[in-house]
């Protein structure tokens, strides 16, 4: 496999009975790239992503994620990726430190490594004062930044983000994107699924799914040019409305 490509997908298909949820999609994602995976509700984004993160077996096609085959090596994929859900998924009734320790442990990090990472992470996020407070008491923006850091705790090759900044205030949102840029700059591939087009504008390249197929894939700049549109939102409306 090409070392520069951390996700390679060819003809990937998922059928539920007669219904084709994902229809032969083909694309690559490079190391350190911020890749936006867009589509309307029901376009097949979630189904496609489930196959990529090793929790749903494809009906047909091939996909290699972080160097592993989605059919045969799903468990290896899970160890080598991070995932952050749009819905806050840390434990509200554990403290900040306990959450970090817990997720570090789940990914098999040693006590020493967890301790070290935990200190760095808490300092970087400026959470020193609340490190021993329950996560439930944190403002939403802090929770989301913490979730993102926890998703990166095991130095995954790829991190999957599901609508990461929905509802967050504009300033925290920028801080969040700066964290994403930093991770990408350090070589982590960032795979973002969203249907908020302003999030799409931040990505290096975006793909747009319509009815199970990838109908467009390029940089936001080139897509806007191709569709003669001022924003990604206009690109999306043109594509989805035919």
């Amino acid at each position: 496999m090409d070392n520069d490509k951390v996700i390679q997908v060819e003809g990937l298909t998922k059928m539920f009975g007669d219904f084709t949820a994902v229809d032969a999609i083909t694309f690559d994602v490079k190391k350190g790239e911020i890749f936006g995976f867009l589509g309307a509700n029901g376009a097949g984004k979630t189904t496609a992503m489930k196959m990529l993160i090793g929790i749903s077996i494809p009906t047909a096609g091939t996909a290699n994620v972080a160097g592993f085959d989605v059919f045969k090596q799903a468990e290896d994929i899970k160890k080598n990726i991070g995932y952050m859900s749009q819905k806050f998924a840390l434990y509200d009734d554990l403290t900040v430190k306990e959450n970090i320790t817990f997720f570090g442990g789940i990914y098999g990090l040693s006590r020493n490594v967890i301790k070290e990472k935990s200190d760095v992470l808490i300092t970087e996020l400026g959470l020193q004062k609340v490190a021993n407070q329950l996560v439930a008491s944190l403002p939403l923006g802090w929770k989301q930044k913490l979730s993102f850091s926890v998703a990166l705790i095991h130095d995954p090759k790829i991190v999957f983000l599901d609508e990461p900044t929905g509802g967050v205030d504009p300033i925290t949102r920028r801080q969040f994107w700066e964290m994403i840029y930093k991770a990408a700059n350090e070589g982590t591939t960032v795979f973002v699924t969203t249907h908020y087009m302003d999030e799409a504008e931040y990505c290096d390249r975006v793909s747009i799914m319509v009815n199970g197929k990838i109908e467009a894939l390029d940089t936001p700049k080139k897509l806007k040019k191709q569709f003669n549109a001022a924003t990604m939102n206009d690109v999306f409306l043109k594509l989805a409305r035919g």
Binding site: G39, H195, A240
Partner: peptide, 10 residues
């Protein structure tokens, strides 16, 4: 419109 795609939002 929270959680709704761009077409439905419009």
């Amino acid at each position: 419109t929270t959680g709704v795609d761009p077409v439905s939002r419009k």
